[in-house]
Simulated assay, not measured.
Amino acid sequence: MRSRNQILLIGDPRSFMVLAMKNELEQRFRVVSCEANCKAVRMLGADVPTTILYYVDGPADPDLTEYLRDVILNDGRDFYINIVGDQDSIDSVYETIPQEQISAAFLRPINVREMVDQLSAAASKKANSAIKKKILVVDDDPVMLRAIKGWLMEYYRVYVVNSAMNVITFLAKNSVDLILLDYEMPIVDGPQLLKMIRSEESTKDIPVMFLTSKSDKEHVLTAANLKPEAYLLKTMPKKDILNNITEFFKRTS
């Protein structure tokens, strides 16, 4: 018999909605449940499942959302965070966890069975993606991060971060096959970050492509001097960006 995927259900166990979700989830998943507070989730330690459904009833607990955000960034596994709540509750999660890090947000009222169908399909797709190449996308624009992730996730395992500091933290615990790097970012820009990556023994060989809106000669030459794998423009057709990445992996495989 095929083993079922595991899911962590976070929410008040006395809530009718949480009980209804748990009952339906148990038809498809092995369910681990805990209350919606940081202490309860921390107690799971390294055993925390990578698929999470968080029922947000009222404003999200900032300690819990900060912990979940740090787990996504530092654990080294692919996490799929899903949230359920009204719009204000969902927005309170986004105050701590960037929206692009959330796999799905289900706005109440919901059809529990349809939601579980969607979660089950996503879990199966996740299991089938284990052999895909891993790409880290770096951009300070959350809209662009979501768009690029959407383009790539059918073909690759995609991670997104929004600052140089988060890149360094992520790479300290994770390996990737390619970095797509924006040029202009606050505090540390793309070229500076690439120099930092190249200066570390553990990351110096990671291939990097620029993916940016900067098309003037000065920016292109500055990047070219750093010898990235490619300099791609965000204004390029999506299929051309994907083709460049595909051809790169064909050349290097």
Results as ranks from 00 to 15, higher is better:
Asp205Gly: 09
Gln192Ser: 14
Met196Ala: 11
Lys173Val: 08
Glu201Ala: 13
Pro186Arg: 13
Asp177Ile: 06
Glu201Trp: 04
Ile187Pro: 00
Lys217Val: 13
Asp182Phe: 02
Met185Glu: 07
Val208Ala: 07
Asp205Tyr: 14
Ile197Val: 07
Ser199Phe: 04
Lys173Asp: 05
Asp182Asn: 14
Val208Thr: 03
Asp177Ser: 08
Met196Trp: 10
Leu194Glu: 13
Val208Gln: 02
Ala172Gln: 13
Asp177Trp: 09
Ser202Arg: 15
Glu218Leu: 12
Pro207Trp: 04
Leu171Cys: 01
Glu184Pro: 00
Thr169Glu: 11
Arg198Thr: 00
Ala172Gly: 11
Met196Lys: 15
Ala172Ile: 00
Ser202Val: 11
Met209Thr: 10
Leu171Ala: 02
Asp216Tyr: 08
Ser202Asn: 14
Asp205Lys: 12
Leu171Gln: 03
Thr169Gln: 11
Asn174Ala: 09
Glu184Met: 12
Arg198Met: 02
Asp182Lys: 04
Pro191Val: 02
Gly190Lys: 00
His219Gly: 15
Ala172Tyr: 06
Pro186Ala: 14
Lys214Glu: 15
Ala172Asn: 14
Pro191Ser: 06
Phe210His: 04
Ser213His: 10
Pro207Lys: 03
Glu201Thr: 11
Val188Ala: 03
Glu184Phe: 10
Val188Ser: 04
Ile206Gly: 05
Leu211Glu: 12
Asp205Glu: 12
Lys195His: 01
Val176Met: 09
Leu193Lys: 01
Arg198Lys: 10
Ser215Lys: 10
Pro207Arg: 02
Asp205Ala: 09
Leu171Trp: 03
Asp205Ile: 06
Asp189Phe: 05
Ile179Glu: 01
Asp189Gln: 06
Met185Lys: 07
Met196Pro: 03
Ser199Leu: 08
Met196Glu: 15
Lys204Val: 04
Gly190Ala: 03
Lys173Cys: 07
Phe170Thr: 01
Phe210Pro: 03
Leu193Cys: 04
Glu218Met: 13
Gln192His: 08
Ile197Glu: 01
Ser202Gly: 08
Lys195Thr: 00
Val208Tyr: 02
Leu194Tyr: 10
Asp182Arg: 06
Ile206Ala: 05
His219Val: 03
Lys173Arg: 12
Glu200Thr: 11
Lys195Ala: 02
Lys204Trp: 03
Leu194Phe: 10
Thr169Asp: 10
Pro207Gln: 07
Asp182Glu: 14
Glu200Asp: 13
Arg198Asp: 00
Arg198Tyr: 00
Lys173Ala: 09
Ile187Val: 15
Ile187Lys: 13
Phe210Tyr: 15
Ile179Tyr: 06
Lys195Ser: 03
Ile179Pro: 03
Met196His: 07
Tyr183Lys: 08
Arg198Pro: 00
Thr203Tyr: 12
His219Pro: 08
Lys195Gly: 00
Asp189His: 09
Phe210Ala: 03
His219Trp: 07
